[in-house]
């Protein structure tokens, strides 16, 4: 379970998160929507400790983590898998080594087991035969998937996605969206997805959170939001509902 209490994050004199309260239950898929610049990515980065809040608390599995030292945070990060907006693969390593990176460091595995887990991760994201390629030799969509494989190879309890389908064509988008759904089920993990893909949010989210100006404007299941009269929510869903 992840809980935010009165989260405030400022950059200079600009408030990005403004007293955010939110509870995310174990095993649910939560989509976070909002116009650009309303603090969606910042929220994710606060969970994994890449940024720290100025005020407020973050509880992950019963621990208040926002004041953790960098060393204490490593144990939290092992629970969280973050998929970045950019693929963020290590250029100097092969695809295999990229995916094996976390495995080799956090688990005592034989070489054979590492290979198995890498292969499994690649199979889950639906690609094969690229283990020895370098990230720069692959298309953007492929890189995104390898990046996803690197994250899920560690079988994290919490999956965080920062715009996983941005810049991908419709078919690959569908593939990734299905992956998010399947992975959440198979790994029994909690997923938080920052996305602009309304279709996907409505079809796979358990709950949707709409952020505006660093606060929650609306929250609810897809069905609840479809019926919502909130103007911002109407704006967001206008195109999807009219089709």
């Amino acid at each position: 379970m992840i809980e935010f209490k009165g989260l405030i994050k400022k950059f200079g004199n600009r408030t990005v998160l403004n007293g955010l309260d939110l509870i995310i239950r174990e095993g649910e898929i939560v989509f976070i929507l909002g116009t650009s610049g309303t603090g969606k990515s910042v929220l994710l980065k606060n969970i994994v400790g890449l940024m720290r809040p100025d005020e407020g608390e973050i509880w992950i599995d019963g621990e208040e983590v926002s004041r953790f030292s960098e060393d204490q945070y490593f144990s939290i990060r092992k629970k969280c898998g973050m998929v970045f907006q950019q693929p963020a693969l290590f250029d100097s390593l092969t695809v295999f080594e990229n995916i094996a990176f976390g495995l080799r460091r956090h688990f005592r595995l034989s070489e054979r087991e590492v290979t198995d887990r890498v292969q499994l991760a690649l199979k889950l994201v639906n690609i094969q035969g690229v283990e020895q390629k370098r990230p720069t030799q692959m298309s953007y969509g492929m890189q995104k998937r390898v990046s996803l494989a690197r994250t899920i190879a560690l079988q994290p309890k919490i999956l965080l996605f920062d715009e996983p389908t941005t810049g991908l064509d419709p078919i690959t988008t569908t593939v990734i969206n299905h992956l998010i759904q399947d992975l959440s089920k198979q790994l029994k993990s909690t997923s938080i997805v920052v996305s602009h893909d309304m279709n996907c949010a409505l079809s796979i989210a358990d709950r949707i959170v709409v952020l505006d100006k660093g606060q929650i404007e609306a929250i609810g299941t897809p069905d609840e939001l479809k019926k919502s009269q909130h103007p911002l929510v109407r704006d967001f869903l206008a195109e999807v509902l009219s089709l």
């Binding site: 890449l50 970045f84 290590f90 250029d91 994250t151």
Partner: peptide, 18 residues
């Protein structure tokens, strides 16, 4: 610097490594 701006260093932290 390139690793930093392409979020590769953040990725290392997120994979639970220093």
């Amino acid at each position: 610097g390139t690793m930093r701006v392409t979020e590769q260093i953040d990725a290392i932290r997120c994979l639970g490594s220093d």
